[in-house]
Amino acid sequence: MKIKLSLLLLMMTALYFAQSNQFIYEYTFKIDSLNRDKSDTENMVLQTTPKGSKFYSQVKAVYDSTMTAAFKDARTTQKVHFDFTSLKQAKVNTEVIKTYPDYKRTLKKEISSNDLLINNDKKLDWKISNEKSKVLGYDVQKATTTLYGRKWNVWFAPEIPIQDGPHEFCGLPGLIVKAEDAKGDHSFTLIGTRKIEVSPDEILNKKAREIVINEEKFRKLWSDYKKDPAKNLRQTSGSTSISAPVSVSASITFDGKTYSQDEMLKLIEKERKEELQKNNNFLELDLYR
């Protein structure tokens, strides 16, 4: 009886945790259209499962898990000081979820700490070329499409039978191993792969705090955010202005310097205003117009 129960438990575990491929891409981007000489990079992960895939920043995954664990611990220990000096912050907050086999896509964006989901079930209009090359040792073929107002050239590998790729790209007869927009402002290049065990539901399920909106609503929220990038933070902290007292006394250390919660609000507002001035060349161009 114990043997049967053990086998049953093993089978249930195998169903819950499926083999997942992780494809690591180097994302190179020029976020300031007025300074195209400067580019940034971030490693991104395309994690595929039998039910679908998730595309996300490798750095953000570490950052989010560390922050979640820290504040969860604080609720039980009443800790009021946090030292995140060594914690690297992500440059990319965008995530993309795709479901198989329909390849419906969900774009996850953040505006002022709000997690927003934009669903998209329109198939990409691909034009497959006869042009061939090699990327990371794979024989690849060229295809072109348009996404969010940008024209893209991509290379897919028929020998990797996964109709997926970085960001929202999918639907070609092979994994997309390289993608670059026509202006050379945004590009993804496959740099590595590995296999891990993971729960598909954990990757694909919508989180409680995520809000589903359409593109029109996103543009409205973005317009409001540009007018007052710290409004949400002030409301969350329980204050009506940056200088008003906050409801919780806490301190956080970044880059070796300790800030009170009120000082952090001021710092974040300053940084967000500076980011808005130079971040004007988003990958999803049409969403920000």
Rank of each mutant, 00 (worst) to 15 (best):
residue 167 H to S: 10
residue 76 T to L: 08
residue 181 D to L: 04
residue 274 E to W: 02
residue 110 E to S: 13
residue 66 T to R: 10
residue 220 K to Y: 12
residue 52 G to I: 08
residue 210 E to M: 12
residue 60 K to G: 04
residue 144 T to H: 11
residue 39 S to L: 00
residue 96 V to N: 02
residue 220 K to L: 09
residue 155 W to A: 00
residue 14 A to D: 06
residue 175 L to V: 06
residue 9 L to G: 12
residue 16 Y to W: 13
residue 111 I to T: 07
residue 280 N to E: 09
residue 126 W to S: 04
residue 286 D to W: 06
residue 152 W to H: 07
residue 147 L to E: 09
residue 226 K to H: 06
residue 226 K to A: 05
residue 247 S to H: 02
residue 151 K to L: 08
residue 57 S to C: 13
residue 197 E to M: 12
residue 199 S to W: 00
residue 206 K to Q: 15
residue 190 L to G: 07
residue 199 S to A: 13
residue 67 M to D: 08
residue 207 K to R: 04
residue 198 V to D: 03
residue 210 E to P: 03
residue 21 N to P: 06
residue 128 I to P: 03
residue 285 L to Q: 08
residue 139 D to S: 06
residue 94 T to Q: 05
residue 256 G to D: 08
residue 120 N to D: 15
residue 151 K to T: 15
residue 20 S to Y: 05
residue 162 I to C: 06
residue 109 K to S: 02
residue 56 Y to D: 00
residue 34 L to V: 10
residue 185 D to Q: 01
residue 49 T to E: 03
residue 236 T to R: 13
residue 190 L to P: 03
residue 65 S to F: 04
residue 68 T to D: 15
residue 116 L to Y: 05
residue 207 K to C: 14
residue 229 P to Y: 05
residue 42 E to W: 04
residue 14 A to V: 14
residue 174 G to R: 01
residue 92 V to G: 07
residue 121 D to L: 04
residue 214 N to F: 04
residue 141 Q to E: 14
residue 14 A to R: 09
residue 39 S to R: 02
residue 20 S to V: 07
residue 206 K to Y: 12
residue 122 K to C: 12
residue 237 S to V: 08
residue 34 L to G: 09
residue 199 S to D: 14
residue 71 F to A: 12
residue 205 N to C: 12
residue 35 N to R: 15
residue 145 T to Y: 03
residue 23 F to V: 10
residue 95 E to K: 13
residue 183 K to E: 13
residue 174 G to N: 01
residue 119 N to S: 15
residue 231 K to G: 09
residue 247 S to L: 09
residue 97 I to G: 02
residue 124 L to T: 02
residue 79 K to S: 15
residue 13 T to M: 10
residue 7 L to T: 07
residue 198 V to Q: 15
residue 282 F to G: 04
residue 90 A to K: 03
residue 90 A to G: 03
residue 212 V to Q: 13
residue 71 F to E: 07
residue 266 K to T: 06
residue 93 N to Y: 13
residue 38 K to G: 00
residue 230 A to K: 05
residue 4 K to M: 05
residue 25 Y to I: 00
residue 65 S to P: 05
residue 210 E to V: 00
residue 52 G to Q: 01
residue 241 S to D: 01
residue 226 K to W: 11
residue 53 S to H: 08
residue 130 N to A: 15
residue 41 T to G: 06
residue 3 I to P: 07
residue 59 V to M: 07
residue 279 N to M: 14
residue 134 K to A: 10
residue 141 Q to Y: 04
residue 195 K to N: 15
residue 163 Q to I: 11
residue 179 A to W: 00
residue 91 K to T: 05
residue 31 I to D: 01
residue 205 N to Y: 12
residue 45 V to Y: 01
residue 140 V to N: 02
residue 138 Y to A: 09
residue 101 P to C: 05
residue 184 G to T: 06
residue 258 T to M: 12
residue 38 K to D: 11
residue 150 R to M: 05
residue 254 F to V: 06
residue 251 S to Y: 09
residue 134 K to G: 00
residue 101 P to S: 10
residue 85 T to D: 09
residue 212 V to W: 02
residue 107 L to P: 02
residue 92 V to A: 09
residue 166 P to V: 03
residue 68 T to L: 14
residue 103 Y to L: 13
residue 196 I to P: 02
residue 175 L to K: 01
residue 58 Q to H: 11
residue 229 P to F: 01
residue 267 L to P: 03
residue 214 N to S: 00
residue 107 L to Q: 02
residue 96 V to G: 01
residue 108 K to I: 15
residue 273 K to L: 12
residue 160 I to S: 02
residue 246 V to A: 01
residue 115 D to G: 09
